[in-house]
Amino acid sequence: MTGWNAADIPEQYGRTFVVTGANSGLGEVATAALAAAGGTVVMACRDEKKATEVAQRIGDRVLVRHLDLADLGSVREFAASMGPIDVLINNAGVMAVPFRQTADGFEMQIGTNHLGHFALTGLLIDRISDRVVTLSSDAHNWGSVDLDDLNWERRSYNRWRAYGASKVANLLFTYELQRKLTAAGSSVISVAAHPGYAATGLQSNTESILDRVMWLGNKLIAQSAEMGALPELYAATAVGVTGGSYYGPDGIRQMRGYPKRVGSNAESRDQELAAALWARSEELTGVRYPV
């Protein structure tokens, strides 16, 4: 896959993708690339006005639908409106925001990045024919999942550790979903991807002085959103992608470059923790998977 880029995406005519958080950054780039390859893309976004503006620039192969991953009622409404899907790309996320809670009382980062996508995937899984791609981050090395305090109700809140925990959760979910799909004899696969250090709006929403620092980092160090989106596009479309795999950039420390298969830390591979997080996620969201 050396040097794989958007021009290498196979034709996607007749295929339907759902991309969460598609109105900016990696999601917008992925949407444009999939539509250019012939796919139909449902842009699942909280900001419908901004998403509509993006959709108008991309063309008539995209549809805008409202989805707020921080509100399980919105997740259920969106899922109920969907028909058959080939690929779900769990792309949306928030990073290092101050402590706040979702509409359902979850800490915002675990609630949006993990629980919202957990619920969405479970509600759609019986309509997905090919793949589930979930975005994680190298920041999964910065945090740890605490099942006894998943929503930071007892610990002193640390925004970066909370972000890292949500990214570990994304990987635990990806790998556990693949084990369940395999056990059920399903041909659907679950894979993960991360963008390295890519210049997107994610870094400008921490509501802290770090927004300015990361803005400068985006200008001087980060690769483009177009490059950052390649691992998720590879995971979503390339021939030969296998379930339970993880893709990121091929450069130094996986910060930039073209997509390749990469590894993840020991906690993300802990099957006992993954099963326990799955059970806790079902309990919190009320979503039970049919696999």
Rank of each mutant, 00 (worst) to 15 (best):
residue 263 G to S: 14
residue 262 V to H: 00
residue 243 G to V: 04
residue 261 R to A: 15
residue 254 Q to Y: 12
residue 249 P to S: 07
residue 259 P to Y: 10
residue 239 V to P: 01
residue 253 R to G: 04
residue 236 A to Q: 05
residue 229 A to D: 01
residue 260 K to Q: 15
residue 251 G to E: 00
residue 261 R to H: 12
residue 237 T to G: 03
residue 235 A to E: 01
residue 253 R to S: 14
residue 235 A to T: 02
residue 260 K to V: 14
residue 229 A to Y: 03
residue 239 V to G: 00
residue 242 T to F: 05
residue 249 P to D: 01
residue 260 K to A: 12
residue 265 N to P: 00
residue 238 A to D: 02
residue 253 R to F: 14
residue 264 S to V: 12
residue 237 T to W: 01
residue 231 P to A: 07
residue 247 Y to K: 06
residue 262 V to F: 05
residue 261 R to D: 11
residue 249 P to Y: 09
residue 247 Y to P: 07
residue 229 A to G: 07
residue 255 M to A: 15
residue 263 G to L: 08
residue 262 V to C: 14
residue 237 T to L: 02
residue 238 A to Q: 03
residue 252 I to Y: 10
residue 262 V to K: 09
residue 232 E to A: 14
residue 241 V to R: 00
residue 254 Q to R: 12
residue 252 I to L: 14
residue 240 G to P: 12
residue 241 V to K: 01
residue 240 G to D: 10
residue 261 R to N: 11
residue 258 Y to T: 13
residue 251 G to A: 05
residue 265 N to K: 06
residue 260 K to E: 14
residue 237 T to F: 05
residue 251 G to M: 01
residue 265 N to Y: 04
residue 245 S to W: 05
residue 261 R to S: 14
residue 255 M to G: 15
residue 229 A to F: 00
residue 238 A to L: 05
residue 259 P to N: 12
residue 231 P to I: 07
residue 262 V to A: 14
residue 232 E to H: 06
residue 256 R to A: 15
residue 238 A to G: 06
residue 248 G to I: 12
residue 247 Y to G: 08
residue 232 E to C: 13
residue 255 M to L: 15
residue 263 G to Y: 03
residue 243 G to Q: 03
residue 256 R to I: 06
residue 265 N to C: 09
residue 262 V to Y: 03
residue 245 S to M: 07
residue 258 Y to F: 15
residue 243 G to T: 04
residue 245 S to K: 06
residue 239 V to F: 01
residue 230 L to M: 05
residue 257 G to M: 12
residue 260 K to D: 10
residue 247 Y to H: 14
residue 230 L to K: 03
residue 242 T to V: 13
residue 253 R to H: 13
residue 263 G to H: 07
residue 240 G to L: 11
residue 229 A to E: 02
residue 236 A to L: 07
residue 239 V to T: 09
residue 231 P to L: 04
residue 234 Y to L: 06
residue 244 G to D: 03
residue 242 T to M: 11
residue 265 N to D: 11
residue 257 G to T: 11
residue 246 Y to C: 09
residue 229 A to T: 02
residue 263 G to C: 06
residue 243 G to I: 02
residue 260 K to N: 10
residue 259 P to Q: 08
residue 229 A to C: 03
residue 256 R to K: 15
residue 234 Y to H: 04
residue 229 A to P: 03
residue 233 L to C: 10
residue 260 K to I: 14
residue 240 G to C: 11
residue 232 E to T: 14
residue 251 G to N: 00
residue 259 P to C: 11
residue 244 G to K: 07
residue 237 T to S: 12
residue 253 R to I: 12
residue 230 L to D: 00
residue 256 R to S: 13
residue 256 R to M: 10
residue 238 A to Y: 06
residue 234 Y to I: 00
residue 254 Q to T: 11
residue 232 E to R: 09
residue 234 Y to R: 01
residue 248 G to D: 12
residue 235 A to I: 00
residue 245 S to F: 06
residue 255 M to C: 13
residue 240 G to W: 09
residue 253 R to T: 09
residue 256 R to D: 12
residue 239 V to D: 08
residue 248 G to V: 11
residue 237 T to Y: 02
residue 259 P to T: 12
residue 232 E to K: 10
residue 247 Y to Q: 07
residue 239 V to I: 05
residue 238 A to F: 08
residue 252 I to C: 06
residue 250 D to K: 03
residue 238 A to T: 00
residue 248 G to C: 12
residue 244 G to W: 05
residue 230 L to Y: 01
residue 257 G to K: 07
residue 258 Y to L: 13
residue 258 Y to R: 15
residue 238 A to K: 04
